[in-house]
Each structure stands twice: as structure tokens, then as C-alpha cells.
Design a protein around this nucleic acid. Structure first.
Length: 554
RNA sequence: GCGCCCGUAGCUCAGCUGGAUAGAGUGGCAGACUUCGAAUCUGUUGGUCGUAGGUUCGAAUCCUACCGGGCGUACCA
């Protein structure tokens, strides 16, 4: 509906220009919004006001010209009003509203999809947790955020690939190997003190036991450096396997895993550094190489090759991003924990230095999760081995509730996640509200069948029977769904979908409590059945975008 | 110190990229099941949008300063 009205306005403005009412100019984007007040119409536009400054003319006068030139071929409009400083308010005819139900009924599970992406290739990189321990709840929020952004973009005409960057090189990996090694020695009674700086978690000892069960004591006689390498590799692979399984149980899958170690092996990092040197973005100071990120707005230059001759993590990361673009992606999305925000200017400097547009990279920061149990904070630290794993959360609160809770908030705001609250199967838990509406509708459909109704399609019902305000509200809400998904895709904001779903579920519950769907009047019942069926369809589609199940009964 | 994020109802949060009289949920209070699912619904209570300036037809939204909370500020990843 929004788009139909915007088109109507655009045509009219062009006509005004032809007739000389308005001076030729480049049109501002035509916005059509939902007014807060019902008395301001079903939709409203402020074009007259935005044109006013360009045209140097009074907004109300412009609005009048535009309204006079509108050609409502399809008889959508009940009336148009000009209000306040120059708003154009549209009132849509009731019999036009109901025709919009044709679309969801035809498109079914594809209702909500669009082609705004135009086939652009997008890489979404997310989670990318170091394989030094199992995923914990902090990773979970980034995981669902990335997953849902990928789902939305896929539905919006983008060609999407999901990637996990494995930091399987560097100090933390060595530390992992050492940690397992010392636990391994303990198993054979080598009781030196377990180093403080090593990973303390119980899972380290588990890994050590696995190696003992497989290889016995053979690593005891190796030189520590050789043993570290073996233990590192084993730990990394084993932990990655666990991570993959946990994510899958959480409904999150990847198309590719990109290994940092591979990047080094393929000379990706050396080639990158050479490129930066060739382009003159790098200077030498003693034995270290500095990248002039300040040329791109960073507040200080950054080291890319250490005194020791080893490239930094940063160097590898630019190399990794170069690889993303070299693989042909038009748009790259990184989902990061908010604690990495300081890193943003430097990575932008990196991609600009390799000749890419800033606008091709979108970094989404996901704020940290405050884990609570009954309102009391739960302390977490990977190093100390104190944390609640993703697996534990899944086992305790379930996948649907966990996902929904993470998706309800803007990723940019801090999130309290209360384990007890998320676990409750009651009205305190918003996921059930939407699911319940879906299940309830499914139940109505079942009852209807039992009573001998068919489930009608668009052409089999008399839509003029939909007269109630609540019914119009539902029709309007259904019609809005594609706009919500599109807005969500453009802004990369998944949280809009839970909010919309909640509103739609609320309108439905309210309608249901006030009116009978299946009553004495067979024709009316069939029409209402049709309406409600489409509400269920949209709720189902919305939940699918969120990766949450849409139950038929619960 | 510097940088980023956040500050909206008692609590948890939306606010459609600058629009008209600021909204939900939750909590409190009062109500609705012999009829399609009460995990539901209806009504009511509740706000100087952190503070002070500025930009303009118009600001919770943009700019500046300050206050409060979080997170960064490595030749770690």
C-alpha cells in the first residue's frame, strides 16, 4: 500500500511539473508513513513540506496542487486531506483494503519476500569465536543476529553466504595447546602447578583425557614445543566440532569456515603486506612495519609486522577482508561483539587501502549480554572457566525462547538475559504470545474442518463482509508485513520482526476475544476464516524469518 | 585523558532514519471462560524523553557542552 501511494504521489508531482505548477527539480525521496493518529488517515506523506524548501513555495499550496493532480485510477482512495503544516493524509477505501489479501493468499510462504537486493552478493561473517573453549551465552546473541540478518537478506533478493572466521593461529591457540598439555601431564601424575595464565575450564581436562585415551603416554616424552603443536591442533579441531554442533542445535549454520592458518599458508598475509607496501601505506621503524591508518581517519598508526617479524592479527584480518572482496562479494557484513568497537576505524582504513569503498562494509556491533538468574547477575570469564555455555542455555530454556529473547532488542543496546524468565512457559515470556496466536489459529482451522467448512481462498469469499474495525486492523497489519521485512533488511535490524509479530498477534487475540470466527452465518464464517488463515500465514512467515518454530499446537 | 555505545512510565524496552496529542510489555488496581485454545482479552494507573543550550515550519530523533552507566584505548586475538 505504501508503495502504491508513493507511486501515486510521484506521478502527480511529475504532472504538476509538466503543467508548470512546480519547477522542474530532482525529487526528494517520497516518504509515506503510518500516522500515529487514526484521524490523520491510513497513511500520510510529508512530500509537500520537503518540496517546500526546494520550490520556495508554501507547503500547503504545493500540497493542494499535488492533491488536485492525483489520478486515482484504481479507486483506492476514500478521501485525501491536507492537514497541519502541509501533510497529505490518505484515507483508503475499505473495499480496496480487503483486495490486498490477495497477495498473501497467492504468495503463501513467499509473502514478505522482495527483490530489493537485486541479486547482490553478500557475505555475512559472524560468531567467529576463537576455538579456545565452547561457545557461551555471549556468543549466542551474535549468532542469532547474524543468522537472522542472513535469512532476511536472502528473502530480500540478496545472494547470501554465511561465514565463520576461525582464528586458529596466534597466541591464544598456543595457549590452548599448552593448557591441554599440562592437564595431560597431570593425568600421569606429573604434579607441577597448573599455570595461572592457562585456560582453567573443565573442558581442557576433558580434551587431555581424550588424547590420553587415544595415544596413551607417548606425548610425555616429546619436547614440549612439539607436543604443544599436536595438542593445539587436536584441541582446535575438537572444539570447533563442538561449536559447530552447538550452533546447529541453535538453528545456526554456515556455508563456509575460513581458517586464519590457511590464509597464512596461502600467503594471503604476505601478499597483503606487499600490496600495502607497494601502495606506500606502510613505513618501517626499526624492525617493525607500521600501516598509516591515520591517513584514513584512525587516531594512530597500527603495527602490521612485529619486531619479531611476525604479522599481527590486524594484518591477517585485512588480508581476510581482502579475500572476502576478492571472492566477488559486493557487500560484506561483519557482526562483532561491542568490545571490539575500537577496531572499527582501523579495519575501514584497511579496506580503503586495498581499494574498496567504505560503504561496502557494514559492521554490526552486538552489545554484550548481561546474564541473570532471577535478577541476579551471573559472572562469566572464559579464562577462569566460569561461564554458562550456549549448550546449557539451550538445554535449559530451549531454542525458541533463547532465540526470541536475543532478537527482541536492538542489537546496539545492552541486553539482560534472565535464565529463569526465559525458561518460564507463561505470559512473562513473549515468544509464547506469538506462538500461541499461531497455534490458536491452527486450532481454529482444525475445528472448521471438523465442522465441515472448507478453508477458502481469495476468490471463494465475499470480502465485503469484513466490516469491523478490528478486521480492517488485521488487513492493514498483514499488508504491512513486506514493508517490515524490507525495512529490516535495509537497516539490518532484525528486532523489528519480533515487534511486528507481537503487534499482529495482539490484534488477532483481541479480535478473537471479541468476535466469533465460526458462527451461525456460514458466509461470514468463511470470510473470517479466510482472514484468520492469512494472519496465521504471516505469523508463520515471521517466525520462520526468526528461526523460531511456528507450532500447530502447544 | 581520548574514543565508541547507551540514558524514554516503578522495571524491561519500541519509537518506522526530522513529523501532528510520546507507545508496548511487565508491575499495581478493577473486570471477562456452559459456545472456535484464559499461555487469552477488556478497562485503569503511570513520562519535564538524563540536564542545558542550538539548528527550523517542526526535535525523543540532528549539532555542542555537561551529568550518569557500559565498553574500548597492545608489536593480544
Amino acid at each position: 500500500m505504501k508503495k502504491k501511494l508513493a507511486n501515486l504521489l510521484e506521478e502527480s508531482i511529475n504532472r504538476c511539473i509538466e503543467k508548470g505548477f512546480l519547477k522542474p527539480c530532482t525529487l526528494p525521496p517520497i516518504e509515506v508513513d503510518l500516522p500515529r493518529e487514526d484521524s490523520h488517515g491510513d497513511y500520510a506523506s510529508n512530500v509537500a513540506m520537503t518540496l517546500a524548501s526546494i520550490q520556495r513555495k508554501k507547503p500547503r499550496a504545493i500540497a493542494e496542487d499535488i492533491v488536485a493532480s492525483i489520478n486515482d485510477r484504481n479507486s483506492m482512495l476514500e478521501s485525501i486531506e491536507i492537514a497541519g503544516p502541509g501533510f497529505i493524509n490518505f484515507f483508503i477505501r475499505q473495499d480496496f483494503w480487503v483486495t490486498l489479501l490477495k497477495e498473501p493468499d497467492m504468495l503463501k510462504s513467499r509473502f514478505g519476500e522482495s527483490s530489493i537486493g537485486g541479486g547482490k552478493r553478500v557475505l555475512v561473517e559472524f560468531v567467529s569465536a576463537n576455538p579456545t573453549g565452547p561457545l557461551h551465552i555471549g556468543h549466542a546473541r551474535g549468532a542469532v543476529t547474524g543468522d537472522v540478518i542472513a535469512r532476511i537478506l536472502e528473502a530480500s533478493g540478496y545472494f547470501v553466504s554465511r561465514e565463520y572466521y576461525i582464528n586458529d593461529a596466534g597466541n591464544q591457540m598456543n595457549l590452548l595447546g599448552r593448557s591441554i598439555y599440562y592437564r595431560y601431564r597431570e593425568l600421569f601424575g606429573e604434579e607441577e602447578a597448573f599455570p595461572q595464565d592457562c585456560y582453567q575450564g573443565e573442558y581442557i581436562a576433558d580434551l587431555a583425557r581424550e588424547i590420553r585415551d587415544r595415544d596413551g603416554n607417548e606425548h610425555l616424552h616429546r619436547k614440549p614445543d612439539d607436543a604443544f603443536a599436536i595438542f593445539t591442533e587436536y584441541g582446535c579441531e575438537s572444539l570447533m566440532e563442538g561449536i559447530r554442533e552447538d550452533l546447529e542445535a541453535f538453528g545456526v549454520t554456515f556455508d563456509s569456515y575460513f581458517s586464519e592458518k590457511e590464509l597464512y599458508r596461502n600467503e594471503g598475509v604476505t601478499r597483503l603486506i606487499e600490496e600495502l607496501m607497494d601502495k606506500g601505506f606502510v613505513y618501517r621503524e626499526g624492525d617493525t612495519l607500521w600501516f598509516k591508518t591515520t591517513d584514513f581517519g584512525d587516531d594512530k598508526d597500527r603495527v602490521v609486522v612485529r619486531e619479531t617479524g611476525e604479522p599481527t592479527y590486524f594484518a591477517a584480518d585485512i588480508g581476510y577482508h581482502k579475500s572476502k572482496f576478492d571472492r566477488g562479494y559486493d557487500m560484506v557484513i561483519d557482526i562483532w561483539g561491542a568490545d571490539h568497537h575500537g577496531y572499527i576505524p582501523r579495519i575501514y582504513a584497511g579496506i580503503q587501502a586495498i581499494g574498496r569503498e567504505r560503504s561496502a562494509l557494514h559492521i554490526i556491533l552486538v552489545q554484550l549480554v548481561n546474564l541473570l538468574r532471577d535478577g541476579i547477575p551471573v559472572a562469566m570469564s572464559t579464562r577462569a572457566g566460569e561461564f554458562v555455555t550456549l549448550r546449557e542455555v539451550l538445554d535449559e530454556v530451549g531454542r525458541d525462547a533463547a532465540r526470541y529473547n536475543f532478537l527482541m532488542r536492538r542489537s546496539n543496546s545492552h541486553l539482560d538475559f534472565d535464565l529463569e524468565l526465559a525458561k518460564k512457559q507463561s505470559n512473562e515470556n513473549p515468544v509464547y504470545y506469538v506462538q500461541y496466536a499461531h497455534a490458536r489459529i491452527a486450532s481454529i482451522m482444525r475445528t472448521a474442518m471438523e465442522r465441515g467448512f472448507d478453508i477458502p481462498g481469495y476468490d471463494d469469499v465475499d470480502l465485503s463482509l469484513l466490516k469491523l474495525e478490528e478486521e480492517m486492523e488485521l488487513v492493514k497489519a498483514i499488508d504491512r508485513f513486506p514493508d517490515v521485512i524490507e525495512g529490516s533488511a535495509r537497516s539490518l535490524e532484525p528486532h523489528r520482526i519480533p515487534f511486528y509479530s507481537n503487534d499482529l498477534a495482539s490484534s488477532f487475540h483481541s479480535y478473537y476475544n471479541r468476535n466469533r470466527i465460526l458462527g451461525d452465518d456460514a458466509e461470514l464464517s468463511r470470510t473470517r476464516l479466510f482472514l484468520v488463515k492469512n494472519v496465521g500465514l504471516v505469523l508463520g512467515n515471521a517466525l520462520r524469518f526468526l528461526g523460531v518454530t511456528a507450532p500447530e499446537r502447544m
